[in-house]
């Protein structure tokens, strides 16, 4: 059994790897565009972490501990960076390849299956997201926002965020009909950024708003990364990870189903 599972996994890896290779070759000429995406999150870090952070000074968390506002906001912006990088890649770019440039129509005639396409796009989005995350963590380190080597665990934590939003982005790419739909997505993402617990503890929100925040995928990502970054580990982290992984698997499953329906007419 395990031999069969192994060879099936290998075949899937090889097929999705072929799509990864395609994206790499297609985008390597536009590397400035890809790399410079990391800049946006860093700008937010400087503006809100340091600029606004200096106005706030220290912030007292619901559990009574006090941390600098900069150290409080930075992990949330890191989580946001992971989300944005992956979402841009899997939603808008996949939509363009799917409906506009018809890249998948050509791949359709090869042994690749929709699942391989979905997986290949997720690999690629993860790589792109990882470069942003790594750049961000390096900057955090340079500005003294990482107190211990444990803080580096924020990187794998971000991978869960990236996976969740890869699933969501892929599903959106297959659901959306036209470009204006992305304006709505951006509006929702922006609202999540502002209200997902980035800037203030959710416990300070009015009671009616709190359940809404708990649904937001970004909230779980922020809690996870912030918890690790501030050294406050707890069992709730497993819940966050489970929620993010469920979004990833569910999103990828729906996306490949919809891709198959649209392509295999």
């Amino acid at each position: 059994m395990s031999v069969i599972a192994y060879s099936a996994a290998r075949a899937t890896l090889r097929s999705s790897g072929a799509l990864l290779n395609r994206n790499w070759i297609a985008m390597r000429r536009a590397w400035i565009l890809v790399i410079s995406g990391a800049v946006e999150s860093l700008l937010f870090l400087f503006a809100f972490g340091f600029g606004v952070g200096a106005l706030v000074g220290d912030i007292t968390l619901p559990d009574g501990t006090t941390v600098s506002y900069t150290a409080y906001v930075a992990p949330a912006i890191l989580a946001n960076a992971a989300m944005m990088a992956v979402l841009a890649e899997t939603s808008i770019n996949v939509f363009a390849k799917f409906k506009w440039m018809k890249v998948y129509d050509g791949i359709l005639n090869t042994p690749l299956r929709p699942w391989d396409i979905a997986l290949g796009e997720v690999w690629w989005a993860l790589i792109r997201g990882f470069t942003y995350i790594a750049a961000f963590v390096v900057v955090m380190g340079l500005f003294g926002l990482l107190d211990s080597w444990w803080s580096l665990l924020a990187i794998p934590a971000c991978v869960f965020i990236a996976l969740a939003f890869a699933g969501i982005g892929l599903t959106l790419a297959t659901l959306f009909r036209d470009w204006p739909d992305f304006d709505w997505m951006n509006a929702v993402v922006f609202a999540m950024f502002l209200f997902g617990g980035t800037f203030t503890p959710v416990e300070a929100y009015p009671a009616f708003a709190q359940p809404i925040v708990y649904i937001m995928p970004l909230y779980h990502g922020i809690e996870l990364v912030r918890g690790i970054s501030l050294g406050q580990l707890g069992p709730m982290m497993l819940v966050h990870i489970a929620y993010l992984m469920a979004l990833c698997v569910g999103g990828m499953w729906i996306a490949q189903r919809r891709l198959a329906r649209a392509l295999y007419k």
Partner: peptide, 16 residues
Amino acid sequence: DGMLTVFENLVVYAGY
């Protein structure tokens, strides 16, 4: 694949 060159189109397709 409009994002690839002529040669890349063949090599990438071979990868599939």
